[in-house]
Design a protein around this nucleic acid. Structure first.
Length: 640
DNA sequence: ATCGCCGAGACT
DNA sequence: AGTCTCGGCGAT
């Protein structure tokens, strides 16, 4: 921990430790990230550096497997070298436990091929080989929204109440030095932000989108990122005013953090986890089904099966709802859905009252069985009869394959659909001490199969299977293509949205991300709260007009009680932001970007054919519509 | 432990 | 638009 007092020189060449501009002779240049360091301020004895031809800075040498640090990696490093290097780095990292090493290795082994290594991803993110017109977006962001410490586009951006942006890593290093003032303007950093900085996800998604749009199309495989357009949703699930008061009853789902479409099969990889860049790890536990949903492991918040009858099932939950279930960890017997009387206001019912059939979700599971798709499995603490269920919450246990399905008479006397799930994940199960993931195993003897009817077994070779050569589970056939509609920039729009947006330009999409959570329009004078929610200055202040920061209290109109601070809850997450509201500072960098985007949009719409229609309700598009109608009216005038 | 609200979300 | 769903809460 003490080693974290190491900081490089900033963009102006000023050492961030001693705050002076060191002479040439005292500057060390990192071999890996080529960032300059002030040698005399390093906590490493200078003698050990003397004569060193190749020197790696503390960031690159001690944390070479740590993908969080934005490194300006040298362009000549080939991806395969990086891959080997990163695997070696994981293996040799003394600070990691075996379990952590396994988790890191998951990124290389999760069947998506080796190209999805986060390290490689990071490199490509930092490539600035920009050509073509579209790259002006990244340039636009690049020039403006930079981390005030490393002067790069922030990785995992956070925004201080004084309106300055940082990489999470840089910020943590900064406060780790005991600094309690903004590295940019010296304003005080609130204590809760020091201990618990929140990612400004609007910035994160925006930067990501800009980067994705920059990637040259047609070169190699086009990688699609599915951004669910849900930035207006809360970090934490809730819905109605009542739900906020009474707890999470009827909670709506909160924001979806991962970039996989709802019909995505298999493990959720680091590349689909823009906030953390680690993917959904085996053993990851969430508080409840709502939170589990937010990480994409299992989307339905009540139903146990996710899937489509004509397509397949992506995930199941073991929650103890069916007494017929039988859990043996690496394999289990699952019961289909339906056949229970859900009349009245019950959503679930313990006892069967009719036969189950292979329709709907049950059919979806049968398709996954026939095709040999990997099915994600989550276990809930509500499954009391299972030895393998977590103590609390909902846990992701990896992918399983459905080897067989059939029908039998359930314990309540009605027919139920049954499925044999067998684990086939490259990462060991949370309950094992195995170092390696699953190996193909012979099927268990199932007593009830003797009396089973409608038995279905897989005829074709499975889509997800074990590769002896690579010794890992992987897609042997291409995974089923997502049927979700994705527009040209990879933004996944919900299929049931009433109005489908026309092809939006990247600029317009970016503008839409900058919507105020109150007025839903593009922010003017944007503020970022310490809880990382973004509003127009006027909107946020307007929400608390007439409220004094200090409440005078009286008792029965006679005796004065001690004055009390007014609680002012963030309109998005209900955290008290009264301190922030005393002196909220506009995020000037963000405002600059928004204004430039709006300016560009305006220019573009003036140049474009006005007959093109837009249905987007962002501020930029609004202006455009206005311009369009003006043009049309002028045309009418000319015609008449 | 059980029961009754609440009115989400996806499939059909 | 109707139907179905291995939730979550507070009250009992």
């Amino acid at each position: 921990m003490a080693q974290h007092s190491n900081l490089p020189c900033n963009g102006d060449g000023v050492c961030m430790v001693c705050q002076t501009k060191p002479p040439e002779a005292e500057i060390l240049c990192c071999n890996t990230c080529v960032s300059p360091w002030h040698a005399t301020c390093l906590s490493i004895p200078l003698e050990t550096l003397a004569g060193a031809v190749e020197w790696d800075c503390p960031d690159c040498s001690s944390a070479s497997a740590d993908h969080e640090i934005p490194l300006a990696t040298t362009a000549e490093s080939s991806s395969s070298n990086l891959l080997i290097a990163s695997i070696r780095a994981i293996e040799s990292d003394q600070s990691l436990t075996d379990q952590e090493k396994a988790k890191r290795r998951q990124n290389f082994m999760s069947g998506g091929g080796l190209g999805s290594s986060p390290l490689e991803e990071n490199v490509s993110n930092n490539e600035t080989t920009i050509n073509g017109d579209d790259n002006s977006f990244v340039n636009l962001l690049d020039g403006r929204i930079n981390c005030s410490i490393c002067m790069q586009l922030p990785e995992r951006p956070i925004t201080t109440p004084c309106g300055h942006n940082f990489c999470l890593k840089c910020f943590q290093k900064w406060v780790g030095l005991g600094k309690r003032s903004c590295a940019n303007c010296r304003s005080e950093i609130p204590p809760n932000m020091v201990t618990n900085p929140r990612i400004n996800s609007v910035l994160a998604v925006t930067i990501r989108m800009a980067k994705v749009s920059t990637k040259a199309p047609g070169v190699g495989e086009k990688r699609l990122y599915h951004f669910v357009h849900n930035q207006n949703r809360p970090e934490k699930a809730y819905t109605t005013e009542r739900a906020k008061k009474a707890g999470k009853a009827n909670a709506c789902s909160g924001k979806i953090f991962v970039t996989v479409p709802p019909d995505y099969f298999g493990p959720i990889l680091a590349e689909n986890d823009p906030d953390r860049n680690q993917g959904v790890l085996v053993g990851e536990t969430w508080e409840d089904r709502m939170e589990c949903r937010q990480w994409g492991a299992h989307l339905p918040h009540i139903a146990g099966i996710a899937g489509q009858a004509d397509y397949g099932s992506q995930s199941v939950a073991l929650s103890g709802g069916y007494v017929d279930d039988e859990d043996h960890g690496e394999w289990f017997l699952y019961t289909g859905s339906g056949g229970r009387d859900l009349s009245g206001n019950k959503r679930i019912n313990k006892t069967q009252s009719s036969d189950q059939k292979f329709v709907k979700f049950n059919e979806a599971l049968r398709i996954s069985c026939k095709k040999g798709y990997p099915v994600r499995v989550v276990r809930s603490h509500k499954e009391k009869r299972s030895f393998y269920a977590p103590e609390t919450g909902v846990r992701y246990d990896g992918v399983y394959r459905i080897e067989k399905c059939w029908r039998k008479i359930g314990v309540h006397g009605f027919k139920v659909c049954r499925y044999l799930f067998v684990r086939c994940d490259n990462v060991p199960a949370p309950w094992t001490s195995d170092e390696h993931g699953d190996r193909p195993r012979s099927l268990p003897a199932i007593e009830e199969l003797k009396k089973a009817t409608d038995v279905t077994e897989r005829k074709e070779s499975p889509s997800w299977d074990y590769d002896e050569e690579k010794s890992c589970w992987m897609w042997k056939k291409p995974p089923p293509e997502s049927r979700q509609r994705v527009n040209d920039g990879g933004v996944y729009e919900k299929t049931n949205t009433k109005r489908r947006t026309q092809a939006m330009t990247v600029r317009e999409r970016l503008l839409k991300e900058f919507n105020c959570l109150i007025c839903k329009k593009v922010m003017s004078f944007p503020l970022t709260t310490p809880c990382a929610h973004n509003f127009c200055k006027a909107c946020l202040e307007g929400a608390f007009t007439g409220q004094a920061f200090i409440k005078e209290r009286t008792c029965n109109g006679r005796r004065n009680l001690r004055a009390q601070k007014t609680i002012m809850k963030c309109p998005s997450c209900s955290i008290d932001i009264s301190d922030f509201l005393q002196n909220p500072q506009v995020n000037r960098e963000l405002m600059g970007v928004i204004e430039s985007l709006q300016h560009e949009s305006k220019k573009e719409s003036e140049n474009n054919d006005p007959s093109e229609e837009e249905t987007n309700d962002g501020g930029g598009a609004e202006k455009k519509l206005k311009l369009v109608s003006e043009d049309e009216s002028s045309v009418t005038i000319l015609a008449s």
